[in-house]
């Protein structure tokens, strides 16, 4: 199994590192552009605002959607087992969350430094922490950010695997059935109560609460893929 996971990880990393790099490259470029604009309009009263986490969260979901679609069939084609693929994916997502959190926080530090050095006051750049009302510790915020990456990644992954295995119709119906309780008031309220454990600003919040949705999603992905054909139901390739 270790041998298989090593191979799968090698494949996953090889097929994805450039995408992640390109995302941050474009994103940094975009911020640099904002900086230049803020710098040149310094005398005027135009204010620039940037958010750090929203783009990377959206990216994470889309990235996970595509990653499954791209790597699942090609890795299984080589001949590792579907179980080893799931394990590798779990290792991968943890690594991914750490890397993303580190990069995004480094970026904030850098931007603030730059702002000070160039003495730019009309450009506000927010990371996750600055958007909280109450004060939360730096480390806790970073863990929280990492957890969100993992959560969104797994959600993207499970949706992708669902469509891959069952095609449009069945998957859409399945998602509807899962989402149904949201429209029933009492359930929806229970769910919101449960969700409060996952929101850092609430009193009940604990990082460990994330383990529950993580395991549900992981088991879900495992159930979907454990006997899945590598023929994509969407494209039949």
């Amino acid at each position: 199994m270790v041998q298989q996971i090593k191979f799968n990880m090698y494949y996953l990393l090889k097929s994805s590192w450039s995408t992640i790099l390109i995302f941050w490259g474009i994103y940094t470029g975009f911020i640099a552009l904002m900086f230049i604009m803020a710098f040149s309009f310094q005398s005027s009263d135009i204010e620039f605002i940037g958010f750090n986490t929203i783009p990377s969260m959206i990216f994470t979901t889309v990235f996970a959607l595509l990653l499954f679609k791209e790597t699942f069939p090609s890795i299984i084609k080589y001949g590792t087992t579907r179980l080893s693929y799931i394990f590798s994916m779990l290792v991968y997502v943890i690594l991914y969350a750490v890397v993303m959190t580190v990069i995004s926080n480094l970026l904030i530090v850098l931007i603030h430094r730059f702002g000070k050095v160039l003495n730019i006051t009309n450009f506000q750049f927010y990371g996750l922490d600055t958007s909280f009302q109450s004060s939360v510790g730096k480390l806790d915020t970073m863990i929280y950010e990492g957890m969100l990456y993992i959560l969104l990644f797994l959600v993207g992954f499970i949706i992708s695997s669902l469509f891959f295995r069952f095609g449009y119709k069945v998957s859409a119906i399945f998602i509807l059935v899962i989402a149904m309780p949201l429209f029933i008031r009492s359930y929806a309220e229970d769910l919101t109560d449960l969700l409060s454990y996952l929101i850092i600003t609430t009193d009940q919040y604990t990082a460990f609460a994330f383990l529950l949705p993580f395991s549900i999603l992981a088991v879900g992905i495992w159930l979907i893929t454990r006997n899945a054909s590598i023929v994509d139901k969407l494209s039949n390739k």
Binding site: Q4, K77, Y78, G79, T80, T81, L83, S84, R226, N227
Partner: peptide, 12 residues
Amino acid sequence: FNNYPVLREVCL
């Protein structure tokens, strides 16, 4: 199917 020791000896 899902058998690594067998499949690493198979190349399609």
